[in-house]
Computed example of a mutant assay.
Amino acid sequence: MATVTTTALCLLASAALAGCGAGGSGEDGSAGDILDEANATMRELDSVTVDITNRTTRGGTVTSHLVTDLDGRCRSKTTWSGGGALEQIRLDKTDYVRPNRAYLQKWKNNPGVTGEQRLWVKTPVDPASSGGDGLTSCKRPFDSFGTARKGDSTRVEGTKAVELIVTDKADKEGTYTFYVAEEGEPYLLKTVYKSAAQHTTTSFSGFDEPLNLRAPKPGEVLSVGG
C-alpha cells in the first residue's frame, strides 16, 4: 500500500510533467522548441482538465481526475486499486476533503468504518505542505527537461499531434513521450512515461473551459481547525 501511495504523490506532484529528477533542457533543435512552446502555452491557460492513470508492477493502479485553474482553485478525485477514493475541492485557502469507506479502512487504519462518507471535511490549506498529506495541489509546472527528439505524427482524441520523445539523465530507467497538438493551439495533449516498473499516462483536455467550482452545501460540511 505504501508503494502505491508514494508513487501517486510523486505523480500528482507532476512527475509526468517536470520529471522526478533535474535534467537539462531539450537540445534537439526543433523538438526542444516545440516542447518549449507547448509548455509556455499550457502555463498561460486559465483552466485545464488533467486525467492520470499510473500503473506499477508492485503497487497496482492509481487514477486521478483534476479540474484546475492552475493556481488556487481546483477539484480532484483520486482512486486506488481496491476501491479507495479521495475527493477534494480546493478554494484558495480552504480544502474540502471527502474520503470513501475503502480509503478510511485502509489508509487511515480504521476497519470499523462501515457506512459511506457523505460529509466533506473543511480544513485550511497548509502552505508548508509538500504533498505528504495526500492532497492535490492546483498548480502544475509545465517545464521542459531532458533531451527531446521528434517521433511520429499521430492523433490524440482526433487531434493531429507530434510525438516528442524525451530522455532524462536523472532517470535512466524511463522514457517520456509528449504529444503536442499540430492543429490549432500547440497544447500538450498527453504524456506517457514508461519504465520497467511503471507506466503513467497523463491526458489534458478542457482547455480554458469554465470551472464552475463551488463549496459543498453547509449541511454536508464538517469543519476541522482554522
Score class of each variant (00 low, 15 high):
Val113Gln: 15
Asp171Thr: 08
Gly151Tyr: 02
Ala170Ile: 03
Ala170Gly: 04
Ser129Met: 10
Gly146Met: 03
Asn110Phe: 09
Thr94Val: 03
Glu157Tyr: 01
Lys122His: 04
Gly131Thr: 12
Phe142Asp: 02
Lys106Val: 15
Glu116Arg: 11
Arg155Ser: 00
Thr123Val: 10
Asp126Thr: 14
Gly112Cys: 11
Asn109Cys: 03
Ser153Arg: 13
Gly158Phe: 01
Asn100Pro: 05
Ile89Thr: 01
Lys150Arg: 05
Gln105Asn: 13
Leu119Ile: 13
Asp168Gln: 08
Gln105Ile: 06
Pro141Asp: 01
Glu87Leu: 04
Gly131Lys: 09
Arg90Asn: 04
Asp143Tyr: 12
Glu157Thr: 05
Thr167Gly: 08
Thr159Ile: 12
Lys108Arg: 15
Glu173Lys: 14
Leu104Ser: 11
Thr136Lys: 02
Gly115Ile: 06
Leu104Lys: 10
Ile165Cys: 13
Leu119Ser: 15
Ala102Phe: 06
Leu164Ser: 00
Arg118Trp: 09
Phe142Lys: 02
Gly158Pro: 07
Asp152Gln: 08
Leu104Arg: 13
Lys139Ile: 12
Glu87Trp: 03
Asp171Trp: 04
Phe142Gly: 07
Phe145His: 09
Asp95Val: 11
Thr154Ala: 09
Lys139Glu: 15
Ser153Asp: 09
Asp133Asn: 06
Val121Lys: 11
Ser153Met: 08
Asn109Lys: 12
Ser144Lys: 12
Asp171Cys: 00
Asn109His: 07
Asp152Ile: 01
Thr94Gly: 06
Asp133Trp: 05
Glu116Val: 14
Thr159His: 02
Phe142Ile: 13
Phe145Asn: 12
Gly151Asp: 02
Trp120Arg: 05
Thr114Val: 08
Lys106Ile: 15
Leu119Gln: 12
Thr147Phe: 07
Val125Phe: 09
Glu116Gln: 13
Thr136Gln: 10
Ser130Thr: 07
Pro141Trp: 05
Gln88Asp: 08
Phe142Trp: 11
Thr136Arg: 00
Asp152Glu: 11
Val156Leu: 00
Trp107Lys: 02
Lys106Gly: 10
Val97Arg: 03
Leu104Asn: 00
Asp95His: 07
Trp120Asp: 13
Ser153Gly: 08
Lys172Phe: 02
Val121Glu: 10
Val162His: 13
Asp92Pro: 06
Lys160Phe: 02
Ala102Tyr: 02
Thr167Met: 04
Val166Trp: 06
Asp143His: 08
Pro127Gly: 13
Asn110Cys: 14
Gln117Asn: 10
Thr94Glu: 01
Trp107His: 09
Gln117Thr: 14
Asp92His: 01
Val156Glu: 04
Gly115Asp: 15
Thr94Asp: 01
Ala102Thr: 14
Thr147Asn: 05
Val162Gln: 04
Arg101Tyr: 00
Asn100Arg: 10
Leu91Glu: 06
Pro127Gln: 14
Val121Gln: 14
Asp168Ala: 04
Arg149Leu: 12
Ser129Asp: 15
Asn109Thr: 14
Ser153Cys: 06
